[in-house]
Amino acid sequence: MRDSFESLVKTITQSIAGRPVDAALEAYLNRQHGPGSDWFRDMTRACEAGVDEGWLCNREAGGVRYGRVVKPGPGSAGFSVDVVDMTDLAGPHHVHPNGEIDMVMPQTAGARFDGTPAGWKVYPPGSAHRPTVAGGRALVLYLLPDGAIEFTQS
């Protein structure tokens, strides 16, 4: 399943390479690769399998299971790829110097990530938040341009 995951990552990162990390990107992703798409369904299955097999979300801190799966490089169009597994909690506050692109995969009906149900949430460069899952459990795949993230004390 890991090969399938990496192939799906390449598909999505190549499709968004060079695009501004903004609301237009969020609309594009939800339209082209949203919850009704084969790609979204296949990536959700690959993430669920990766968690079950132990190669995704194999670390834990503060109740958040997480793991960086792909480092930024040519094969991922310069994006890092991380997946988190959260249930009804807020993660550590951080800043996105180059933005953050999140794929939300509820595992419990009604679970939301920062208010977003199944689908995509895009944070522009310079934004910050405490990533929060409410209403149950969700997996969140996030893409960071150049792998840039800064954890803060807030």
Rank of each mutant, 00 (worst) to 15 (best):
P125K: 07
A111S: 10
C57Q: 04
M43W: 01
G126S: 11
E53C: 07
R65N: 12
A27M: 07
F40H: 11
H33E: 11
E26M: 05
E26T: 06
A118F: 04
A90N: 02
A77T: 07
H93P: 01
V81L: 14
D38V: 13
Q32T: 15
G34A: 06
E150H: 08
G36I: 08
N30C: 12
W55H: 09
A128R: 03
P117W: 00
R31E: 15
S37R: 08
G119K: 02
D85G: 05
I12R: 05
R59A: 15
R59C: 13
A111C: 08
A77D: 10
A134H: 04
G36Q: 12
L29K: 03
A24H: 09
S80L: 12
T44L: 05
L8V: 11
G126P: 02
P72S: 09
S127A: 15
V133L: 03
A128K: 03
N58V: 03
G119L: 02
S15H: 07
V21M: 02
V81W: 01
V122H: 01
L25K: 02
D82E: 14
P106N: 07
E53K: 10
E53V: 08
V64Q: 01
M43D: 05
S76H: 01
I101N: 01
R68P: 10
Y66H: 11
L29G: 02
N30K: 08
D42N: 13
R31T: 15
A109K: 12
G135H: 00
T116I: 08
A111M: 06
P72G: 06
P35Y: 09
Q107F: 00
I16S: 03
L144M: 09
R65E: 13
